[in-house]
Amino acid sequence: MLKFTEEHEWLKIDGDIATIGITEHAASQLGDLVFVELPEAGAAFSKGASAATVESVKAASDVYCPLDGEVVEVNQAIVDDPSLVNSDPQGAAWFFKLKLSDPSSANALLDEAAYKELIG
C-alpha cells in the first residue's frame, strides 16, 4: 500500500512496517541536497514530530514523522551520498522504516491520486 502526506512524504506500508521517504516533488523543490541527518534506530516519534533533516546549499528542512511509531531501520546510503535523494527519491533513497503503533492509522493518509491532485 502506497500512501502520501501533505508534507510530501511517501509511505510504502507492508503489515505494520512503513518505509518512508520524500516525494519526487519535494526533492525537486529542495534542490541538490548536501546533507541528510536521520534518526537513530529505536527512536519513537509521534505523528508530526521532526524525525530527519535534509539540507541543500541554501537551507535546512525538516522531514516529519507521518504516523506514530518506532524507527526500526535507517538508510545509511543517503547519509553517505545525499544526492541519491535527488536522483531516486521514491526508490533507493528511502529514509527510514517505522514500526507503526497503529497500522490502521495509515488509512487516513492520501492515496496517490489525492497526492497528485495536491501538488497539481
Binding site: 534542490g31 541543500s56 546549499v57 541554501k58
Partner: peptide
C-alpha cells in the same frame, strides 16, 4: 531569481 533549472550547486 533564486535559482534557474540547473540549481544552486551546479550554478555555483
Amino acid at each position: 531569481p533564486v535559482q534557474y533549472p540547473e540549481g544552486v550547486l551546479k550554478e555555483h
